[in-house]
Every structure is written in C-alpha cells, then in structure tokens.
C-alpha cells in the first residue's frame, strides 16, 4: 500500500507535527511504502539549524535524519510553500526534493492512501 502524508504543521506550535511524524514512522515500521509531502507551514519542519532544546522539546530536524533507517526515501517539499515563506533550498534539509504544484497534485493522484495532518 502506498501512503502519502501531507505534513502541514509547523514544528513546535503544537504537538501535532511530532505526532504526525510518529505516525509516519509507524507506517514505515509496518512495511508500507511511505511518501512525504512537506507543505504549507510543514516546510518549516525541514528548516536547518533547529535548536529545539531551547524549548525543552524534541528536535524534529534530528528525527527527519532517521528516515533513511526506516526506508523512507520519497521526501518532497512544495516549492510554492517555500517561496511564500521566504525559504530557499539552501534553508532546508537536503534530502527533500522540491516539487511544483503539478507534481504535488500528481503525488496525490497516484497514492493509495492520503493522510493529511
């Protein structure tokens, strides 16, 4: 089964971004094919240089580095969302592939299960 997660939450405003990642990792741990699309404020999860310990929180940026160990290799980021937020590819984790609107929509079309968080 091919899962596409739409990750829309900024990392530290609520616990939802972290709980969404827990769901992503659980899905991969159950041998499902997982694709991720960071979009809207979710692109801030990819921001480099996070120091979440200043908020006594777990660091989302660090957890993203575990994706490869979970065989999560299809990581995408919405270019429009980056642009609206003044970010460029230099600001974000290099493992994410930046894609345009048509590609975002195509991802949704070809996924078996889309989960929007």
């Amino acid at each position: 089964m091919k899962y596409l997660y739409l990750l829309r939450q900024a990392p530290y405003q609520s616990s939802l971004a972290r709980e969404a990642l827990d769901m992503v990792l659980a899905t991969a741990a159950f041998d499902q094919h997982v694709q991720l699309l960071f979009i809207n404020d979710g692109v801030f999860q990819l921001q480099k240089g996070q120091q979440a310990d200043l908020l006594q929180q777990k660091n989302i940026e660090k957890t993203l580095q575990a994706f490869a160990l979970y065989d999560i290799n299809d990581v995408y980021c919405c270019s429009h969302s980056l642009q609206l937020r003044g970010l460029t590819t230099d600001n974000i984790d290099a493992s994410a592939q930046v894609i345009d609107q048509a590609q975002c929509q195509a991802l949704i079309q070809q996924a078996d299960k889309v989960i929007s968080l």
Binding site: M1, D22, M23, A26, F30, Q32, L117
Partner: peptide
Amino acid sequence: SGLGQWIDAVNQTDQHIIFGN
C-alpha cells in the same frame, strides 16, 4: 493501543477519514 491499529485499519478498509483538531 498503538499506531499499528490505525495502520491496520487504513489497510483493511475501503476508506479512511480524519477529523482534525
């Protein structure tokens, strides 16, 4: 129980739906 119960449910059913926060 754990998230595995959710993944199982999504896999086993015709449709899933999320009601957000």
